[in-house]
Nucleic acid binder design. Sequence first.
DNA 1: ATTATACTGGACCAATCGGTCCTCAACTCG
DNA 2: CGAGTTGAGGACCGATTGGTCCAGTATAAT
Lengths: 192, 192
Amino acid sequence: MARPQEFDTAEALHKAMGVFWRKGYEATSLVDLLEATGLSKSSLYGTFGGKRELFLAAFDSYREERTRDMGQILNQGSAREAIETFFRTIIDVARASEFSRGCMSINQAVELAPHDPEIQGRVEEDFQRIEDALTYTIKRGQADGSVRSNKDARELARLFVVAFPGLQVMMRAGGNKPRLDDALRLILSNLD
Amino acid sequence: MARPQEFDTAEALHKAMGVFWRKGYEATSLVDLLEATGLSKSSLYGTFGGKRELFLAAFDSYREERTRDMGQILNQGSAREAIETFFRTIIDVARASEFSRGCMSINQAVELAPHDPEIQGRVEEDFQRIEDALTYTIKRGQADGSVRSNKDARELARLFVVAFPGLQVMMRAGGNKPRLDDALRLILSNLD
DNA sequence: ATTATACTGGACCAATCGGTCCTCAACTCG
DNA sequence: CGAGTTGAGGACCGATTGGTCCAGTATAAT
C-alpha cells in the first residue's frame, strides 16, 4: 500500500495555472512553480511529469474553465445583454485586480502558438469555440429581438472574435479606460 | 587611433530586431542574437551594452519604422481607402510570409508590458499614436466624404485601435482566413 | 618604430535552468 | 515484524544563461 499523497492535485494544478497565466511559459521557472504549489520537485515531477506537461495540463484546465464560464454568461438573459455581459466581464475582471493577466489563450497565441503546433491547435480551437458560441447567441438574439442587426450571425460573431483578443491584450498591457469603454460601446453597437 | 568597426551597427540592430520580433524577449538567447547579427559577444556588448539594452534599441527602432509606415499609408489617397489599406496590410504581410511575426508592440503588450513599466510606457505610447493617427484620418475622411459615418472620430478610432491587436494576435497565431476577412469587412463597415 | 585607442575572438565565470536520483517516510497487507 | 509501493525532500547533474575579461588585432598619430 503506497504512501498517501499529501497535497491536492487539482489545487496544485490551479496554483501552477495562475503562475503560467501571469508570467507565460518561458519566464516561469521551476522555482516559481514550486513556490506557488508548495510541492517539492519530486512531487511535481512525479505527479505531472515535467514543466511542459504541467503547462499543458494547466492550460487545458484554464480553457475548460473559461469555456464553462462563457457558456454560463452567454446563456443567461436576453442574447444582447449576455453578449454585453461577456465583454464587459473582460474589462471588469481585469480592473478589479492589481495585476491584469488578460486571457491565457490569447497570451499563448502570442507566445507559443507561432512556434508550437500543439499550442496553436488549442488556441485555434478556442477561437473557434468562441466564434460558435457567439454565432449561436447572436442567432438567439435575432430570434428574440434583442439583437436588432439582421446581418449574418457568423459574420457578426467573427467581428466579436477579433475584438476579444484586442480587448484582452489592451487590458493586459494596462488598459486605458476611455479607449476601452468607447471601443466596446461601438463594437456592441454592431448588434443594433 | 582606434581600430575601425567591421560590422554595420544599424544592420546588426535590424537583425536583432527580427529575432526579438519573432521569438519575444525571454525565449531569445544570446546565442540566437550572435548568430543573427554575426557579432562576437564582445562586439555586441561593446556596442549595445547587453541583452536588455539591445532589446530596447531594437524595439524603439521597430516602433519608429512602423510609425513611419503607418503615416505613409494613412496619408495616401482617400481616408476611407487609406484606413482599409492599413488594416489589409496587416493581413497581407502576414500571409506573404511563412512565419507570422504579428506586431512587436502587441507581442510586448502581452509579454513584458504587464511586468515592466518601461515597456508598458512604450506600448501605451504606440496605442495612443495609432489612435491619434486614425482619429486624424477619420476626420479627414468625414471632411472629404469618403468616411460616411458621422460618429465621433475619436470613438471610431478607438474601435479600430482595439481591432488592431485583435487582428495582429490572430495572424500571429495562425490566421483563419474567412474569420479575418469577415471580421475586417464588418469592422471597416463602421466607417460607412 | 612606438603609443594609444577601440575592436575582435573566445575563454572563463557564477548563477540558473529543467531534470534525475537517492534516501527516507508513510501507508497497508500478510 | 518485514515486504512492497508510492510520496516527499533535497542533493546532484549537465547544459544553458547573460555577463566579464584577457590577449591579440587594426588603425592613425607621433
